[in-house]
């Protein structure tokens, strides 16, 4: 479609007002691709040809692969960040637990010595035979039983003695 200078000027005016249709923009680009552009309109030639030349640039073939690689790398990094975040939460809970333990650790009767976690191999000290086990159990139970009874007997005797001492007050 052959267009005169006035029509082109009107189209350029509408183009910069963003009123042109896609077909009209195509007409403008086609006009400026021609050899015989009006002298007064040559100032727009570079502008319209710039977009045309940019449109002809083709992406290198390996670019798509590179872009995919970059996206994958970023996704992996995000996964790593998620694991780090999770680990930092676990560490925070652990540190909080330790802090609470030291804050509320129970007090002893006197000199406080921190309880120590250990993994003692008790099998080294285990009795070797049933007879030995029975002997130790008997000894331990008898001792405990005797002491429990001794304690209550002393207490009972003391209460009786105290009552007798203060009986004259009645």
């Amino acid at each position: 479609m052959k267009m005169n200078k006035k029509e082109i000027e009107a189209l350029i005016h509408r183009y910069f007002e963003a009123e042109t249709s896609l077909e009209e923009e195509q007409l403008l680009r086609a006009y400026f691709q021609r050899d015989e552009v009006d002298e007064q309109l040559k100032i727009y030639e570079g502008y319209f040809n710039y977009f045309r030349s940019q449109g002809e640039i083709k992406a290198p073939e390996h670019l798509a692969g590179k872009v995919l690689q970059t996206i994958q790398k970023e996704a992996n990094n995000k996964k790593g960040i998620r694991v780090l975040r999770l680990l930092s939460r676990v560490a925070a809970v652990f540190i909080l637990g330790i802090g609470l333990w030291f804050l509320y650790k129970p007090g002893g009767t006197g000199e406080e010595i921190k309880p120590t976690a250990s993994s003692i191999d008790w099998s080294k000290y285990e009795v070797k035979s049933e007879e030995e086990a029975i002997k130790v159990m008997q000894m331990a139970l008898r001792k405990t039983s005797t002491e429990l009874k001794k304690g209550t007997n002393i207490a009972t005797t003391e209460i009786h003695t105290t009552k007798e001492r203060w009986a004259f007050l009645k």
């Binding site: 129970p106 007090g107 002893g108 006197g110 000199e111 002491e147 429990l148 001794k150 304690g151």
Partner: peptide, 26 residues
């Protein structure tokens, strides 16, 4: 031993101190 035991964990059921200085704590 008496000093080390944590009295918040362990309740003293009985303390016996006899005249011959035998001490027992349960």
């Amino acid at each position: 031993a008496k000093a080390k035991i944590n009295t918040k964990d362990y309740e003293i059921l009985m303390t016996v101190r006899s005249k011959d200085k035998d001490n027992v704590e349960i």
